[in-house]
Computed example of a mutant assay.
Amino acid sequence: MKYSVDENGYYGKFGGAYIPEMLYPNVEELKENYLSIIGSSDFKEEFDKLLRDYVGRPTPLFLAERLSQKYEAQIYLKREDLCHTGAHKVNNTIGQIILAKKLGKQKIIAETGAGQHGVATATVCALMGMECIVYMGKIDMERQRPNVERMRILGARVVPATSGSQTLKDATNEAMRHWINHPTDTHYIIGSVVGPHPYPDMVAKFQSVISEEIMNQLEAATGSPYPDYILACVGGGSNAAGAFYHFMDNEKVNLVAVEAAGHGVGSGESAATTALGKPGVLHGSKTLLMQTKDGQVVEPYSISAGLDYPGIGPIHAHLFDTGRVQFLNATDEEAMNAGIELSRQEGIIPAIESAHAFVALQKLDLTPNDTVVINLSGRGDKDLETYIQWGKY
């Protein structure tokens, strides 16, 4: 595939593994073993069985008739919000927990922003009887408290990150520090297509079940497996990587990623990486990230905790760099309005992260013959307090 990772862990000029010496054995162990493990028949059998019987896959592809009428296109929603735990994140944690088990690991660590990846990690650790520690920014813990309590009920220890902006970037920093200090018995389940190789490729492969199902379901519904557009929100970018995966080499499918503009791209309070970022190294890979002239990371901002990240995964940096994916952005106001619109039009309250993708409907020049698939990556239960505080409904 033209847009796949190469043998050195790069997507074009982005990717790689920029890691401290103490982490080299861990990352090398993963790199040497992940393809053979996830390609084995016993892995596939266990993974597919859990996705079906535990996660609830395949998730439906729903024709949103009222949205379709309003925006004059055929709009389908890929209902990842109906996965067990409420978001797409569990696709990846199921895969990684099986991988960790086969590598002989006894403990799991993770980072989380919106809490959905943390909940998904705590869930699979409970399922497999493994110790779980989740790092979460102190601010994110306050604004996503229901997910914090869900993790604790599931038996995870939630550790606040109190440095920097006290959000996702800082939680990732703390998780990596923990991994450096516990290199032999611990596996780090990274939640997005970020981090050192092989994580971006591994997470994308686990999430590619989304695009695989879209192709099958769309063909059954329309006679063609290929839509005209696929829309997804992007922070680190795991749901978008999963939704785009099987369509990247078909240039006739327009791939659209929507980043969080926060209070506006030029406001100084934004997380629109492709608009504001430049190449640099963050959390073990070369990618696009928001940074000062001397290379210090600029603190991101978004009303959505899961998009509040100063970079994007290297696969998305490459897709942006090559022009394969059109990157748009949505302000807090636009995203919240889109979330309320979906709630009123289709009876589905989306995660605020996912609501950003729906803003693209207003910004694209759609026609009645266009088939559009929106990856509805998560449900809005966790965001009710934010919706309430926002108050405009």
Rank of each mutant, 00 (worst) to 15 (best):
residue 46 E to H: 14
residue 320 F to Q: 10
residue 335 A to Q: 04
residue 266 G to T: 02
residue 219 E to P: 12
residue 361 L to W: 11
residue 26 N to K: 13
residue 366 L to I: 04
residue 161 A to H: 05
residue 184 T to K: 09
residue 216 N to F: 10
residue 12 G to Y: 00
residue 253 V to Y: 12
residue 175 A to P: 15
residue 272 A to K: 00
residue 183 P to W: 02
residue 90 V to D: 12
residue 224 S to Q: 06
residue 180 I to T: 10
residue 213 E to Q: 08
residue 9 G to D: 03
residue 47 F to S: 08
residue 42 D to V: 15
residue 378 G to Y: 04
residue 259 E to D: 01
residue 25 P to A: 04
residue 300 P to K: 00
residue 100 A to P: 10
residue 335 A to K: 07
residue 315 I to A: 11
residue 325 V to H: 00
residue 155 G to H: 12
residue 61 L to H: 10
residue 369 N to P: 06
residue 306 G to E: 06
residue 148 V to W: 02
residue 392 K to G: 06
residue 226 Y to G: 10
residue 318 H to P: 05
residue 349 I to Y: 01
residue 120 A to F: 08
residue 306 G to T: 05
residue 52 R to I: 12
residue 64 A to V: 14
residue 95 G to S: 07
residue 181 N to Y: 07
residue 137 G to Y: 02
residue 92 N to Q: 15
residue 88 H to T: 10
residue 251 E to G: 14
residue 35 L to W: 10
residue 303 I to D: 11
residue 353 E to V: 03
residue 23 L to F: 15
residue 257 A to K: 02
residue 295 G to K: 01
residue 364 L to K: 04
residue 293 K to W: 08
residue 189 I to W: 08
residue 393 Y to T: 14
residue 78 K to T: 06
residue 176 M to V: 15
residue 206 F to T: 15
residue 72 E to Q: 14
residue 311 G to Q: 01
residue 250 N to V: 09
residue 275 A to N: 09
residue 30 L to A: 07
residue 376 L to F: 03
residue 30 L to N: 04
residue 392 K to H: 10
residue 204 A to G: 15
residue 284 G to W: 03
residue 37 I to P: 11
residue 222 T to C: 05
residue 101 K to Q: 15
residue 348 I to Y: 08
residue 10 Y to Q: 08
residue 154 L to H: 07
residue 188 Y to P: 15
residue 219 E to H: 11
residue 217 Q to S: 07
residue 99 L to H: 06
residue 200 P to T: 02
residue 10 Y to I: 09
residue 153 I to P: 13
residue 105 K to I: 05
residue 320 F to N: 14
residue 355 A to S: 06
residue 225 P to W: 02
residue 337 N to A: 07
residue 94 I to T: 10
residue 142 E to K: 09
residue 250 N to Y: 10
residue 377 S to V: 01
residue 12 G to K: 00
residue 132 C to G: 08
residue 203 V to W: 14
residue 360 A to R: 01
residue 101 K to T: 15
residue 207 Q to P: 13
residue 335 A to P: 03
residue 72 E to F: 11
residue 340 I to A: 14
residue 33 N to Q: 13
residue 318 H to S: 14
residue 57 R to S: 09
residue 174 E to V: 06
residue 80 E to F: 03
residue 354 S to V: 01
residue 230 I to S: 14
residue 27 V to L: 07
residue 310 P to S: 08
residue 121 T to K: 09
residue 287 T to Y: 02
